[in-house]
């Protein structure tokens, strides 16, 4: 297989030329997102899950629930643990092993989008103050990497979280833990959507493909909540001018309703 960095070098000039004339290799507009598809079916043993594709990029997100002790500084809040696995199955450049810096960054960016918008009602996940709370494991699995995995992860996370049903746990007066058969819906109060842009020359492009990512000068991920607020930003490689970041934020805000509609229609979110 041809190393993708060599391929990027070869096709890079063409992508740059196109960008300078307002075009993209796959014919999309600069602010056009690839087709989002949520695959129906059950693929995991998770309490909530979503197999999402963004163009040719595919991810699988699973939410597992458990119980444990809360952090000492937040005795009345549940715990959210986000984890990204960039499987070697997803790309010839991903290697087996513990999460590398890219995987850790992606997990933390999605995590911050959720926290920044207070998307999950963490107080509702406490069982007994200071002793027992629900722990929510958000595992994001890359399956097929054709660029912008991070937005695919964020979309998959929202769908998976919105579908999460957690068994009710009660603590008896004797202090014994009882797992009930009934479940409750994970309390999801907001839908923070992330929008990743790359910069090629002066062009700002939303939802980059892998080829575009590899030739890009800079990248930034912005998350917007349902009331149009910016709830997290992560500049990744490269640099932006202030006006470019402002432009990216306003494009992200203007695209929010379109993506939210897809999530609600295809993902069954209420």
């Amino acid at each position: 297989m041809l190393d993708e960095r060599i391929a990027a070098e070869l096709v890079g000039g063409y992508i740059r030329e196109l960008a300078a004339s307002g075009q993209r290799k796959d014919g999309r507009a600069f602010d056009e997102i690839r087709e989002i598809k949520i695959r129906p079916g059950t693929f995991t043993k998770a309490e909530g899950e979503a197999w999402v594709s963004l163009g040719a990029t595919q991810v699988l997100v699973g939410v597992k629930a458990d119980v444990g002790t809360p952090f000492p500084d937040t005795p009345d809040k549940g715990v959210l643990i986000s984890n990204v696995e960039l499987l070697p199955l997803a790309s010839p450049t991903f290697e087996p092993g513990p999460p590398d810096e890219n995987a850790i960054e992606m997990a933390r960016v999605v995590d911050r989008a959720l926290r920044g918008s207070n998307a999950i009602d963490m107080e509702a996940l406490a069982i007994k103050s200071g002793e027992l709370v629900y722990m929510i494991f958000l595992d994001m699995y890359a399956l097929d990497h054709d660029g912008n995995i991070i937005d695919a992860f964020a979309l998959g996370s929202l769908v998976a979280l919105s579908r999460t049903k957690i068994p009710v746990v009660e603590v008896t007066e004797e202090g014994e833990m009882v797992v009930k058969e009934e479940t409750f819906d994970l309390p999801l109060r907001d839908l923070p959507i992330t929008f990743t842009f790359i910069k090629i020359g002066d062009a700002l492009m939303l939802d980059p493909t892998l080829e575009e990512e590899l030739v890009s000068d800079a990248a930034i991920t912005i998350s917007i909540d349902s009331s149009g607020r910016v709830c997290s930003i992560q500049k990744r490689h490269g640099s932006f001018r202030v006006d470019e970041i402002k432009r990216a934020v306003s494009i992200a805000r203007s695209k929010y309703p379109e993506v939210e509609k897809i999530l609600r229609e295809q993902g069954g979110l209420v």
């Binding site: 995991t44 043993k45 998770a46 899950e49 699988l60 699973g62 939410v63 597992k64 458990d66 984890n83 696995e85 499987l87 070697p88 087996p96 513990p98 999460p99 494991f137 595992d139 699995y141």
Partner: peptide, 18 residues
């Protein structure tokens, strides 16, 4: 060859990694 179980593949979450 690498056989790997996803953390969400089992009733109880499996710790990632071999």
């Amino acid at each position: 060859c690498r056989y790997n179980m996803a953390p969400f593949s089992t009733p109880e979450r499996k710790r990632p990694g071999p």
